[in-house]
Design a protein around this nucleic acid. Sequence first.
DNA 1: ACAAACCATAACCATTTGGTTATCGTTTCT
DNA 2: AGAAACGATAACCAAATGGTTATGGTTTGT
Lengths: 108, 108
Amino acid sequence: MRTANANPVFRALADPTRRAIFEELTLQGEQTVHALTSYAGVSQPAVSKHLTVLKRAKLVRHRREGRETHYRAQPDALAPVVDWLRTYGAFWRDRFDRLEALLERMDG
Amino acid sequence: MRTANANPVFRALADPTRRAIFEELTLQGEQTVHALTSYAGVSQPAVSKHLTVLKRAKLVRHRREGRETHYRAQPDALAPVVDWLRTYGAFWRDRFDRLEALLERMDG
DNA sequence: ACAAACCATAACCATTTGGTTATCGTTTCT
DNA sequence: AGAAACGATAACCAAATGGTTATGGTTTGT
């Protein structure tokens, strides 16, 4: 289960509107496309396209309910980014590693 | 000192060639544009442009030495991404928070 | 002094991206 | 049944992106 392809995730997070949508879903929970549209300040088709990109990165899931589609954040899809930071964010790596060691000792 | 603008950083990390350059600088240390060019598999001007983007995100620093320019990674510029993950990566937030608490107790 | 090496910039190009309006298929409401 | 709401898709467009070759300015080597 080690780190899926990071590229779609980094790509998806590169756009501020997309990040805003993901943030909204994270903070407020599941939302319809309609609700997200009034939040995002762009047209409904634009939101649908952003959601498609987020979907490809597995950062959101959707659930159809009648005529509406409910989207929710899937934050564990951020794992590739966390892994990447652990490997290349030298400044942070030590802290991550110390965390892991400590947690394992605690959990053990 | 809380979290500079995250956008240039996310943008910079969105391109795989740029990530590869940053990774190379992180793992191998300071490098000239020439060295990075043979590593990256694109033309020298392309590398220069990528370095400019990384520079704007403060992910790299450069140092002129005669006719060559040495670049090195500046991984603490990843801080905005880490902060963002702490806020919106709900799945990871607990671990981050536990880390902070533990480290503070240890350092104290 | 001349030539070569190094790197940034300019000029250019094809593709991708993020947005729009228009439309279509469903589902719900009256 | 007919109208309205919801959301995905199509068609389109301007701007941004990532790449190229050409060039120019320094610095180094002969």
